[in-house]
Simulated scan of single mutants.
Amino acid sequence: MTTRKAIETRARLQQVATRLFAEQGYDATTVEQIVRTAGVSHMTFFRHFATKDAVILDDGFDPTIAAAVAATPASLRPITRVCTGLRAALSHVDVPEQEQVRQRVRIAAQHPALRMGMYANTEATREAIVGVLLDDGADEFAARVAAAAVLAALTVALQEWCLADDGVPMSAALDAALAVVDGGAT
């Protein structure tokens, strides 16, 4: 069980690291600088993040997404299940402060290794969604297309949102992408 203190420490590490990465650049920032600025030990850092990359890439959202898709009626079309599940997951997850998310995505998008890590995370999410759909008897091709289409739409929405700085909440940008994929918007 994760304690409140552990959650706060993890959030502080992520906040400090994100700020340092934005100020100094990802490569120029060391774990030593992060732990010193956050006031924790190396051991504490690595208890929360396996690598420096993980500070930017870890979001812990995959199990929530898979569970939310699994909770949708198996009778729905795969694309509808994925969109419905993601809407439910987004409404129930505790998203970090939006500006920090914006910074993390910008940092990852600008760094080749982190960008590859984002793609790997998306692939893991896609496979988790496909697994849920297949477990409920969905056609494999339809399950793979649905998961890939929805995640591609969310990726575009997140990237556009990060570049816009227009005050639109992240949740609104993601919901608009889901509406396009699910046929609710053009």
Rank of each mutant, 00 (worst) to 15 (best):
C83P: 03
C83R: 06
C83K: 10
C83H: 08
C83S: 10
T84R: 15
T84K: 13
T84E: 10
T84Y: 07
T84F: 10
G85E: 02
G85T: 07
L86Q: 06
L86P: 05
L86T: 05
R87D: 11
R87Y: 05
A88Y: 09
A88P: 07
A88R: 15
A89Y: 10
A89E: 12
A89F: 12
A89S: 12
A89V: 08
L90Q: 11
L90A: 09
L90K: 07
S91G: 11
S91H: 09
S91C: 07
S91T: 09
H92T: 15
H92N: 13
V93A: 13
D94G: 09
D94S: 14
D94K: 10
D94C: 10
V95W: 10
V95L: 12
V95S: 07
V95Y: 03
V95G: 02
P96L: 04
P96S: 03
P96K: 06
P96C: 03
P96H: 10
E97K: 04
E97W: 06
Q98G: 11
E99G: 03
Q100L: 08
Q100Y: 04
V101H: 03
R102G: 01
R102I: 05
R102E: 05
R102C: 03
Q103P: 00
Q103A: 04
R104D: 02
R104S: 04
R104V: 05
R104E: 00
V105E: 00
V105W: 03
V105H: 00
R106D: 02
R106C: 06
I107M: 00
A108I: 04
A108H: 03
A108T: 01
A108N: 06
A109M: 02
Q110M: 04
Q110Y: 01
Q110K: 00
H111L: 05
H111W: 08
H111Q: 11
P112W: 01
P112K: 00
A113T: 11
A113R: 14
L114T: 09
L114H: 05
L114D: 05
L114N: 08
L114C: 01
R115D: 12
R115L: 14
R115W: 03
R115F: 06
M116R: 15
M116D: 13
M116A: 15
G117M: 01
G117V: 02
G117W: 04
G117P: 07
G117N: 01
M118N: 08
M118E: 13
M118W: 11
M118L: 15
M118I: 09
Y119A: 13
Y119H: 12
Y119W: 07
Y119F: 11
Y119Q: 12
A120G: 06
A120K: 01
A120F: 06
A120S: 03
N121H: 13
N121L: 13
T122I: 11
T122P: 07
T122H: 12
T122C: 12
T122S: 12
E123V: 14
E123M: 11
E123T: 14
E123G: 09
E123C: 06
A124Y: 14
A124F: 13
A124I: 11
T125S: 12
T125R: 15
T125K: 15
T125D: 11
T125M: 12
T125L: 12
